[in-house]
């Protein structure tokens, strides 16, 4: 049988991706708001320590982009979860589509947002350095300018973490849509295991699998592998759902 147009998965995913980027472009300004807010909070310093003896006292105030990263990762989780809300999922069915194409276009959108976050977080961190440098005229900074290696590593690592957290949010959202009971059980189990002394070490080891990795290349590979596994699992789990659920 011949058709005037032959849709293939690639073109359908691309069209849906463009449509989602247009209709959900609000996620980018929301990222900017979150980052500007965390930037403002970071200006006062993210930590301090002090020591003293007799007439000598030392007070050290730390400035870092840690808060900006944390806020951005929370934003990534929320965005991932938010895209699974029924109203957003159902807009896909205005197109000729299936579950796979819908998932793939959302995943590409999440990866784009993560990449954008990965670019802006280190840059905002460097901007923070610049502001702190000019605001505190007597501040002592040894390495004001970041080394190019630092820029590259920050970019890759932040984008990786943002992709990981948005994937987590998306997986949580899809599980929630699939079965609220199952989602509650899984969340409860995770929290329970984290606070039980016998199993908390296992949970910490899972966290260490990512955050204790010193090689950027290995970290990127771990993140890519996790993303592939989690997204494949979600696609497999929800592929047989009826069109509108």
């Amino acid at each position: 049988m011949m058709y005037l147009t032959e849709p293939n998965l690639k073109s359908v995913v691309w069209k849906q991706y463009v449509c989602k980027l247009k209709s959900l472009s609000g996620i980018f300004p929301s990222l900017m708001v979150v980052q500007v807010l965390s930037f403002a909070l970071s200006l006062g310093g993210t930590g301090s320590s002090g020591t003293g003896y007799g007439g000598v006292s030392i007070h050290v105030r730390y400035f870092s982009g840690e808060l900006i990263s944390q806020f951005t990762f929370w934003w990534a989780i929320i965005v991932g979860f938010w895209l699974t809300i029924k109203n957003y999922r159902e807009t896909d069915f205005f197109f000729v589509t299936n579950r796979l194409a819908s998932h793939l276009s959302t995943i590409v959108l999440l990866l784009t947002a993560s990449l954008y976050a990965g670019i802006t977080v280190p840059l905002l961190g460097f901007f923070l350095r610049l502001v702190v440098y000019w605001r505190n005229m007597n501040v002592i900074l040894n390495d004001v300018a970041p080394s190019p290696d630092e820029l590259l590593m920050s970019l890759l690592v932040t984008a990786g973490y943002a992709a990981l957290f948005s994937c987590l949010g998306y997986a949580a959202g899809m599980l929630f849509q699939l079965s609220e009971v199952m989602f509650s059980i899984l969340l409860g189990t995770y929290i329970g295991l984290s606070f039980t002394p016998a199993t908390s070490e296992f949970i910490q080891n899972v966290h260490r699998f990512y955050n204790a990795e010193s090689s950027v290349l290995l970290f990127t590979m771990k993140v890519a592998l996790t993303l592939c596994l989690v997204y494949a699992f979600i696609i497999f789990l929800t592929n047989r759902l009826e069109v509108r659920r």
């Binding site: 840059l123 460097f126 350095r129 610049l130 970041p146």
Partner: peptide, 9 residues
């Protein structure tokens, strides 16, 4: 934000 990188240098 990208402008801040050369300014730091």
């Amino acid at each position: 934000l990208l402008l801040s990188v050369p300014l730091l240098y």
